[in-house]
Amino acid sequence: MSDIPAPAPTRVAFPPNWPMRIGFAVLALYIVYASTILDITWTRFIAGFGHAERFLSRMFPPDFAPDKLALLQSGMIESLQIAVLATIFGVALSLPLGLAAARNLCPAPLAWTSRTLIALFRTFHPVIVAILFVKAVGFGALAGVLALIIASMGFLSKLIGEAVEEMSMKQMEAVRATGAPFLSVVVMGVMPQVLPRFIGFSAYQLDSNLRNSALVGLVGGGGIGATLFTAFQRFDYDFVLTIVLTIIAIVMVGEILSGWVRRLFQ
């Protein structure tokens, strides 16, 4: 017993963390301040519920009239096409960009240029990119496809670059030691290591493009988003509900499919 000295009474296991306490206090004050400035009040919140109730009641029952269904069908097909095309081109373009961004594979100037480009692609939300493309190439699916290609490249290139940076250098070194040219090293030494993750990312991106393809339509990028926007403008809330339900169904199917693809290539 005597060889274990009693702890000195002054020792504290959890000393007060004053910087953190002050940090939280400042955060709380800021929330109150920002809410006041933005006129976020309880009264308005309650009033909002009343509006929502009227809006929702006008949505029911959803409108399944044949002419509306035809609109829905053409819009939905266009959205799917936008998503698929954007994913295919996005994947094809992200692969070289992602490889170029890997610092363990490419010389620093190339890697940093690619990283800057990727950062640029990721700066804006797809909707803002879509607005720019609508201005550049006009209303319609082309603008939507281009916007989603940019979004896909931002996401996929970054993840591919990171996957390549985490790969085993030993495997690549052995292929390089055989005298293989650079692209053969990539094909046989790098790609096998990152391919399963690449396919997983791509499936996820298809899923994500499916959701965003509805979004880019809202700003003129074609597809179901355009139909949805028109329905809102015309106060066809029952048709809005039909469209929303269809989008939910498609996105869920997409998610199941992409999950299935990812499992297949684990």
Partner: peptide
């Protein structure tokens, strides 16, 4: 390099 074969401690096969 292609005329020089190399065998590694940790085999370095592409897994």
């Amino acid at each position: 390099r292609r005329r020089i074969g190399m065998v590694f401690q940790e085999y370095n096969l592409v897994e």
